[in-house]
Design a protein around this nucleic acid. Structure first.
Lengths: 162, 162
DNA sequence: TCCAATTGGTTGAATGTTCAACTCTGCGCG
DNA sequence: CGCGCAGAGTTGAACATTCAACCAATTGGA
């Protein structure tokens, strides 16, 4: 592929990388299951509700949702369709752009979010935030922001690929 | 649910948590796509090959694979079935326990791993390891190990759930 | 002005994952 | 011994995600 030699990871880096992967699967699965069992929604659905709740009119364009979560447009379409079926969201035509579709949180969606937020935040704390020092989390935040920046920058047309 | 008040996350913690989720989806998707495009395997399949390659006889019990990756047994069954179909792994009856099944890496699997490792390590470096200081990664490793420990400890019979 | 490329979004099929039910073997103890 | 429970793994259906193909509206030059 490239001309340069592959620089392998040393044992420590391998361990850190593996800890990251395994810990992440465990963490995400746990939080997802907690939300499903307590409130019948997935973490992806929860995250969408959160983003909608942060706007003044509880409304977001499909593309904005996809972008902010780094999900594919297709995925957002499917997820929103499911949420529409269960009455958490409804679709509306966008004002300005006739191609556009707004996802609008319903009252039911708002209600559910109020309840689910307790469960979720408790989980995030118990399984993640409360497990290490603020400094360690700051470092983690640094790293993950760098990851996003690098990947988005490296790939200007990222939406097309995902 | 519990009697205690929910302690919400402050703005900084929210930001860090969101950076973690978004960065992780971006990172995992990218590494997965790189492996698929270059070598036709998923990251999960790659990880299985790595674990097999680390044993003296390139063999692991199904349950061990599931445990070390924190995947459900069912998921491992399906993944290994796919890999068996594409000739990277074969199944063998376990010596000692007649219930057991060994996954054995084939030569083809070994070959593929040799090639794929370059791609993958290059990706892990470019998109993750080389983006922050060793100290930041140490912190990250700390946190993620704590996460795993907590979740595994909290749930002694974790296998049953996942 | 008009057409080509881009953007926003959806669709349906292929692929992957989860979930619950099931089989088979092993273990402990009356 | 023999019964019942636990452990290992598989199965198939339901569910979620990806991928490629598609349509419709918009934009930006020649």
């Amino acid at each position: 592929m490239t001309g340069s030699e592959t620089r392998w990871l040393d044992a420590e880096q391998q361990g850190q990388w593996r800890a990251y992967i395994v810990g992440t699967t465990l963490l995400m699965d746990t939080l997802d299951r907690e939300l499903r069992q307590a409130h019948g929604i997935s973490m992806a659905e929860y995250e969408i509700l959160v983003r909608l709740s942060e706007t003044p009119d509880r409304t977001l364009r499909m593309a904005k949702i996809a972008e902010s979560m780094q999900h594919s447009r297709s995925r957002v379409t499917h997820t929103v369709t499911r949420m529409e079926k269960s009455g958490l969201i409804r679709r509306a035509a966008a004002e300005d752009d006739k191609r556009g579709v707004d996802a609008v949180m319903t009252d039911k969606g708002w209600q559910l979010l109020q309840e689910a937020a307790h469960t979720h935040v408790a989980g995030v704390r118990a399984h993640f935030v409360d497990l290490a020092s603020p400094d360690d989390f700051a470092a983690m935040g640094q790293v993950m922001n760098a990851v996003s920046d690098q990947l988005v920058a490296e790939n200007p047309t990222f939406e097309d690929i995902r």
